[in-house]
């Protein structure tokens, strides 16, 4: 059960509140500490289809057993025009330490915008994906404490999804869950998106048993899967809840939706 409480601040470690002033040790010596990272909980999820990509994340921000806010977006449009990112075609989702996530989003957004000013054309998703990897690896020894997922459409108009570890190792995938409830959501996705452990009924036994072949899912099915994944995660994980933010990237642009989740 220890894993359930992993979001709590380290026991006996430094507090984050100014009300907890360092107390003098019996010897009279003081010890000060500063821990630069916090886990803000939450979960994100991305699924790519034939001509679309969906990214989703819950909007709860936590610190230990407390809720900072019920609406802190984890999904950000990258590129496009101005502060509202009009006409953007790339979405970044970040989960982990929210301050690092914001800083990372800010850097990538600036780079993608500068790219358009300098080259007169939009950055491709594959180029943006590689650049994001470099940004993360540049801080190899003081990392951005986030799991990033980048979504968009590739040069052929197919759904593109890239996932990252905190130091920039990345991979293009069909689907990925990240964050606090990743361990709950990912096996559900393996089963429902890539049809893992599903077999053709009546195809035989033992080695004759035929695995069900994965195929790109329709947009509506994927939206439903995302909602099911999050309502399930909310039931079993205390750091996930409040609201579900989704961004659907198609050739027509980015559609954004918000669905309420349980607030308990």
């Amino acid at each position: 059960m220890a894993s359930v409480f992993s979001g709590a601040p380290p026991q006996g470690g430094p507090g984050y509140s100014f009300t907890q002033t360092p107390r003098a040790a019996p010897s009279g010596e003081r010890q000060h500490g500063f821990y630069p990272y916090t886990d803000n909980g939450g979960s994100t999820l991305g699924i790519s289809g034939a001509d679309f990509t969906i990214l989703a994340g819950d909007t709860r921000s936590t610190s230990g057993y407390n809720i900072n806010t019920r609406y802190a977006p984890k999904l950000f449009k990258i590129g496009g025009e101005g502060p509202d990112n009009k006409g953007a075609q790339i979405v970044l989702s970040v989960v982990g330490f929210a301050a690092d996530g914001d800083a990372l989003k800010e850097r990538l957004d600036t780079i993608v915008k500068m790219y358009k000013y300098q080259h007169g054309k939009n950055m491709t998703v594959s180029a943006c994906a590689q650049r994001l990897s470099h940004i993360l690896y540049n801080k190899r020894f003081f990392p951005y404490y986030v799991h990033a997922i980048l979504g968009g459409l590739d040069e052929e108009g197919k759904g593109a999804l890239y996932s990252y570890d905190p130091v920039g190792s990345y991979e293009r995938e069909q689907c990925r869950a990240a964050g606090a409830a990743a361990s709950l959501i990912m096996p559900f996705l393996d089963n429902q998106v890539n049809f893992k452990n599903q077999y053709m009924p009546g195809s035989g036994t033992g080695h004759n048993l035929q695995a069900r072949q994965a195929q790109p899912l329709p947009q509506n099915d994927v939206e439903e899967l995302v909602r099911d994944a999050f309502t399930s995660a909310v039931e079993r994980h205390i750091e996930v809840g409040d609201g579900l933010q989704m961004m659907i990237i198609t050739r027509d642009g980015i559609a954004e939706t918000f669905t309420p989740l349980k607030k308990d």
């Binding site: 361990s183 709950l184 096996p187 559900f188 009924p201 995660a233 079993r236």
Partner: peptide, 19 residues
Amino acid sequence: SDQLFGTCEGLWEPDLVSA
């Protein structure tokens, strides 16, 4: 158990029968 909680919560419904 984490992984099983996720899949069960996602796929279970009342009155399931054997295939």
